[in-house]
Amino acid sequence: MTRIGVVTFPGSLDDRDAARAVRLAGGEPVRLWHRDTDLAGVEAIILPGGFSYGDYLRTGAIARFSPVMASVISAAGRGVPVLGVCNGFQILCESQLLPGALTRNNHLHFICRDQKLRIESSRTAWTAGYRPGAEIVIPIKNGEGRYVADPDTLGRLDGDGLVVARYLDGNPNGSVADIAGIANPAGNVVGLMPHPEHAVETLTGPGTDGLGFFTSVLRQLVRA
């Protein structure tokens, strides 16, 4: 069974849900600790949501220098699929695995609701199972989810098709160009503000629209 690592930082909240989503998608979740440097042979890595290290200084700024991240950064460079959700996305930006930054919501409120998204790219390890243009609903919950990047970076993201998902029916945090998620040029690293791991079964989520992120990567790893 394909092993997918889920990293727990002090202050991570969604690591159990992420591990559960991996299991429901048919993979074997492997729990990794922020002090680990050995990734236990996992074939993909998820950085979950939460408030790593209390989000002191800036969201993700201290997690970025945790021992496990040195291994995650080097694995990402080798093409290992890495998904960062919410705090995980913030950590990926702080790590410069993805460009830009996540800043405080323009309205200053913490937002928690079901959010409609459009999947803009299926050329990533985590969205290959979605049809481009597919509209999905998954939860969003953040206080610092406003994506910002300089005009050159935005032009590159757009021109190279690296925007993975955009907000529909209202931008929840003031993100530039309604950006909800982006990928690196290789497509193995994806950061997403909303939470696919909270939409993997109808009992506990708005639907199962998030499951595709986990089945996409599993299918790609089995094929590889």
Binding site: L57, R58, A61, F65, C93, E94, P99, G100, A101, T103, V148, A149, D150
Partner: peptide, 8 residues
């Protein structure tokens, strides 16, 4: 390295 994120 740490205190500022020079992107923003």
């Amino acid at each position: 390295k740490l205190l500022a994120n020079t992107v923003i």
